[in-house]
Each structure stands twice: as structure tokens, then as C-alpha cells.
């Protein structure tokens, strides 16, 4: 995949939720960290807009898939760290499965066409 211009990630809700859950599966992060991690791991292609990120985090909190705790950031500031719950892990597995099926299906269609 070639590196194009960075795209602002205004993905479908479910997709962003999945990316956040996936990102958190490696350990707790604060909001800014999540955005940065997604950007890095997508080689700067996916830029999560704050306008989507924080609403998404609030949604995940309400679903009970993540927890939030106040801690100290790497810059010694108070920051809210999000971590995955057991429910969240299960949800991630479900969504990963579904995502794989979807990608495979889309791939098939694209191959055939």
C-alpha cells in the first residue's frame, strides 16, 4: 500500500470503536495517546478527529467496554487513562471476527469484478 495523503478518520462508528478497543488491548492509554497510536500504527494514514474520538470513548464507557481512571501522563500531567474491560475484550473479539469476514467478502467482490 502506498502512502497517500493522511485521511481524517471519520469512519463508521463501529469501525472507530473497534480501532479504539484494539489499540487499548495492548494496555491503558489516554485519549491523546489513543489518537497518536492509531495514527502511528496506520503509518499516518488514519487521523482520528477529536470530534469523533471523545464521543466514541464516552460511548464505550457507557457500554461498559472500557474503564477510565485518572493517572499521571508521561509529561507529569493529570490525564484520564482508558483500559479494556473483560466485556470490552469479548466485544473486540466479536468485532474482529466480523471485520475479517467483511474484509474477505469485500476482497472477493473486488477480485471478481
Amino acid at each position: 500500500m502506498e502512502r497517500g495523503d493522511p485521511v481524517t478518520l471519520d469512519l463508521l462508528r463501529g469501525t472507530l470503536d473497534m480501532l479504539v478497543l484494539k489499540t487499548l488491548s495492548r494496555g491503558p492509554l489516554h485519549g491523546y495517546g489513543i489518537a497518536q497510536r492509531i495514527k502511528q500504527n496506520s503509518s499516518d494514514v488514519l487521523q482520528v478527529g477529536e470530534g469523533s474520538l471523545y464521543p466514541a470513548l464516552q460511548r464505550l464507557l457507557l457500554q461498559g467496554w472500557v474503564t477510565a481512571e485518572w493517572g499521571t501522563s508521561e509529561t507529569n500531567r493529570r490525564a484520564r487513562f482508558y483500559g479494556l474491560t473483560k466485556d470490552g475484550r469479548r466485544q473486540l473479539a466479536r468485532e474482529t471476527d466480523e471485520f475479517r469476514r467483511m474484509v474477505a467478502a469485500i476482497g472477493q467482490v473486488m477480485e471478481l469484478a
Partner: peptide
């Protein structure tokens, strides 16, 4: 507070407030 933190972090990384959006 969380949003404020986010802004500070962006400024520290050299991005302006304008990039944060509304």
C-alpha cells in the same frame, strides 16, 4: 479537563489549537 489535556499535548507536539477543531 480531558479536552484541555488533549490540547496541551497537541501544542507540545507543535500542532496549533486550530487543528483541534471546534
Amino acid at each position: 479537563e480531558e479536552i484541555r489535556f488533549h490540547l496541551e499535548m497537541m501544542e507540545a507536539d507543535g500542532a496549533g489549537r486550530a487543528e483541534f477543531g471546534n
